[in-house]
Computed example of a mutant assay.
Amino acid sequence: MSASERGVDPVGVVVPDGKDWTWVLERACPDCGLDVPAVVREDVAGMVRANAEAWVGLLAGAEEGLRRRPRPGVWSGLEYACHVRDVFRLFRVRLDLMLAEVDPLFPNWDQDETAVAERYGEQVPAVVAGELAAAGEALAAAFGRVAGEQWGRTGGRGDGARFTVESFARYLIHDPVHHLFDVTGERV
């Protein structure tokens, strides 16, 4: 049975998102409703845990529904979950860099290339759920250990975006919250 016969569009159909999402550090997101500037930095660890728990619950749903894209060019719930798992992993690495090095430049990451290479739409939801939960907990624990002057440590992306650990935490939490909205339609 081909992917299209199962109701799954090929991964390559998704058009890369070229937006610079750092604007969420300045104002609430009109789509998902998260008011990123109002997020208390110490709350990010708990927000990551709660978000990971919501994804794990979503991944417990019917596998066929998780694999189905709502329309061409839009990831399925499973693909979004894989992306969130990888965001949690990546941001843990980047947080560690910011805490260990002076003003590190983060290695580039192409999320769309990763989705294709890792075959997000073909992964096993139960496995993704376990990996997402573990990655979320590791990231939450890492943010939970940040204290005092560490919040002011800096790092940046190759595109010129600069972050403190505090702004990095706020920027991070928007991504999984927004993608949960993408899948469920539920605003925060």
Rank of each mutant, 00 (worst) to 15 (best):
M1E: 15
S2Q: 09
S2Y: 06
G7F: 09
G7C: 05
D9T: 12
P16V: 05
L25H: 03
L25R: 00
A28N: 00
C32K: 00
D35I: 09
A38W: 11
A38K: 08
V39P: 00
V40R: 09
D43Y: 10
A52E: 04
E53Y: 12
A54H: 08
W55N: 01
W55L: 03
W55T: 01
V56I: 12
G57L: 07
L58F: 05
L59H: 02
A60L: 05
G61F: 13
G61M: 13
A62M: 10
E63R: 12
E64I: 13
G65L: 05
L66M: 05
R69S: 11
G73P: 09
Y80E: 12
C82R: 03
V84D: 12
R85G: 05
R85Q: 14
V87N: 08
V87K: 00
R89F: 14
L90H: 14
F91T: 03
F91Q: 02
R92A: 15
V93T: 12
R94H: 05
D96K: 08
A100E: 13
E101A: 15
P104S: 07
P104F: 07
P104L: 03
L105S: 12
P107Y: 07
W109I: 13
W109V: 12
D110C: 01
T114H: 14
A115F: 02
A117V: 10
E118Q: 14
R119T: 09
G121E: 02
A129R: 00
A129H: 01
L132D: 10
L132I: 11
E137H: 08
E137G: 12
F143G: 00
R145Y: 04
V146Q: 00
A147N: 07
Q150W: 09
Q150D: 15
G156Y: 08
G156M: 06
G160W: 13
A161E: 04
A161F: 03
T164D: 05
V165T: 02
E166P: 03
S167D: 06
S167M: 01
F168N: 02
A169T: 02
A169W: 01
H174D: 04
D175G: 11
D175N: 12
L180C: 03
D182N: 05
V183N: 02
E186A: 15
R187I: 07
V188R: 12
